[in-house]
Design a protein around this nucleic acid. Structure first.
Lengths: 233, 233
DNA sequence: CGTTGCATTGAGCGATGTCAAAGCCTGTGG
DNA sequence: CCACAGGCTTTGACATCGCTCAATGCAACG
């Protein structure tokens, strides 16, 4: 089954990721009607920008994205990387405006869930409302864990944890947790982890020397998973 | 008007903070019926602990709290400080279990909004549902900004920003943004900001030497607000 | 009045940032 | 198809900010 533009929610292979709750067929069909399938988004194109009015939430069908906010001087802070099945845009619900920019790291497909219709529909389908709250809650949790890592771990620990977690997220999507592409640049990765590019590069080299991973540009193979894990706790 | 245990939502002086949306009187009365007013929570007592089953959300009527999560070794990461009017517990919605502990920093009063009733009521009052999502979204935003500060700013910048922001949050509550108690220990503050106690202590001393603040134990007076602001951008 | 937790201050060091240079891809246009 | 430009990555030398370790001070409380 492909992720072609015209597939329905009921048949979408990532529906259990983006809205992983047991909706009835009739509920799924309701949802299906409101979802807009957008045309492909090319690498480096933005899905929305800082200050854009909230149009809707987005479920990623394929491809990966990064999100970032800016400080007063226009410097970026990468706030997350998003994979197929992720739903993004929750941070815009508060003031109906996106606080950050979300940009494709490779060609991607998304479904838009228009905000106003979602609002109505979540009244008709209580489970949908709960599901959205649950996703937002999970994001809060994820960010808390990230803060813990950022604040308390060494550069090597942060990077090792990132690699393992990224693999875990891929595994949830039936992909290999041990062999994968890192879709982001070293700079983006360093920015996310609070490290400089140079540190990221040096550490990746060291991990490779230690025979913990192999590296071919953006392609990572985790050889010694337990060594990485051990570093993180 | 006091924050006595038996006051109704309609008359609560912080209702526009904890649920700052225009509910009709009948809606307010509905909300009023479900809210449990808890007995006072003493300093160092916990409101809930890591792993506790979600009972409900909590609106703080008076007092302050800190929240923290733990890593595998039991080390704490302070994830936030909560003031009157804040609603906490959203991070437990995902798996109906609190991922962290919330502890009173001084004697406090809270209202509990039982989860199951909230769930039902949010179906009857769509605006309540939106309000909750909005609060969660705002928390996501706040955490993103915190990450930016943690990752990109120097120790002095982080601390200066914290002092200004804390003052701002007090101002939103009609309290002085320039003269206030820091309810947390230096250790908690350092932990939150990703700094050691010693660094926090040294910086506070330096800020005082620079005539930017005065310090008397936990009581802070901001003398040169603009100097602190300037440091942060 | 002793104990205990919290805060302050100093000295020294090390992890990570900064600065610099070179190499390597990728995409583009001739 | 090749040459070039620009961006990304790697590696090295060096500097420094904030951490670690240690000691002292201070206040609250039993």
């Amino acid at each position: 089954m492909s992720t072609s533009p015209n597939i329905s929610c009921a048949n979408c292979r990532i529906s259990e990721l983006c809205l992983p709750f047991s909706l009835s067929n009739s509920e799924l069909n309701l949802l299906d009607e409101i979802i807009k399938r957008k045309k492909p988004i090319q690498k480096n194109q933005t899905l929305f920008k800082i200050g854009d009015t909230l149009s809707g939430l987005y479920a990623i069908r394929s491809g990966t994205f990064k999100s970032y906010i800016e400080n007063a001087q226009g410097e970026h802070q990468v706030t997350g990387f998003h994979l197929p099945g992720d739903v993004i845009g929750f941070d815009a619900l508060a003031d109906k405006t996106h606080p950050g920019t979300t940009q494709a790291l490779e060609t991607a497909m998304v479904c838009e869930i228009p905000y106003d219709v979602l609002d109505q529909l979540s009244n008709q389908i209580p489970r949908l409302k709960m599901q959205i709250m649950s996703l937002m809650s999970a994001e809060l949790n994820y960010n808390q864990r990230h803060l813990l890592s950022i604040n308390q771990e060494s550069a090597a620990q942060k990077l090792a944890r990132f690699l393992v977690k990224f693999g875990d997220r891929l595994a949830e999507r039936q992909l290999s947790s041990k062999e994968f592409q890192l879709p982001m640049t070293r700079t983006d990765l360093g920015n996310y982890l609070g490290l400089t590019v140079e540190t990221v590069s040096r550490l990746l080299s060291r991990f490779q020397q230690n025979q913990w991973i192999t590296l071919d540009k953006k392609f990572v193979t985790i050889i010694d998973h337990s060594a990485l894990l051990q570093l993180t706790d």
